[in-house]
């Protein structure tokens, strides 16, 4: 086994091992490892920053959304109030109009009734006149006596009773 036979090479092997390992150690220690550490640290801090910023932006977005929702809710409430107000106004108006209409209708009815009453009176008047004439004509024909108009009228009036009394003079 050469490993155990070539004893004369041992010193050289140990020497070169120590030298090479020493060089590797110093280079790793002073150059390579700090560089890797720096790169890792940079990445870590960058990652932390990014995550931090993401959280911050999210918070901001939440605030904005909250504000927006609040504004929305306010606008909605305002709209509701306006609608309610409008509705109230409208109903009041219609009630008023309704009352007015009822009133005017009642007035018209009263007027019409008055007209009807007047018409009736006039009709009664003309009936009396016709009755007077008929009475005098009938008297003349039957009795042969000419009744003057004044008497005939009085007779008719008494016959008719008090119906048209208000209208006579």
């Amino acid at each position: 086994m050469p490993q155990l036979e070539q004893i004369d090479t041992y010193l050289s092997q140990v020497f070169w091992t120590a030298l090479c390992f020493g060089i590797l150690w110093i280079v790793m220690w002073k150059v390579t490892l700090p560089r890797i550490a720096m790169a890792l640290e940079q990445r870590q801090s960058r990652l932390d920053d990014d995550l931090e910023r993401a959280a911050l932006i999210k918070e901001e977005a939440d605030t904005v959304r909250e504000g927006y929702e609040k504004a929305l809710a306010e606008a909605h409430a305002e709209g509701q109030a306006a609608i309610r107000k409008q509705t109230a106004e409208l109903s009041e108006d219609s009630a008023r109009r309704h009352a007015e209409l009822t009133e005017s209708l009642a007035k018209k009815i009263k007027k019409a009734e008055a007209n009807i009453a007047a018409e009736k009176t006039r009709a009664m008047e003309s009936v009396r006149e016709v009755a007077v004439e008929a009475a005098s004509a009938a008297t003349e024909r039957l009795v042969g006596v000419s009744v003057d108009a004044e008497r005939a009228r009085r007779a008719v009036e008494s016959a008719m009773g008090k119906t048209g009394s208000g209208d006579g003079d």
């Binding site: 995550l51 993401a54 959280a55 999210k58 977005a61 939440d62 959304r65 929702e69 929305l72 809710a73 909605h76």
Partner: peptide
Amino acid sequence: MSERDPSPSKGFEARL
């Protein structure tokens, strides 16, 4: 209408 709906941001939150 004005109900809160956090679902659009939920995915993001979970990912974060």
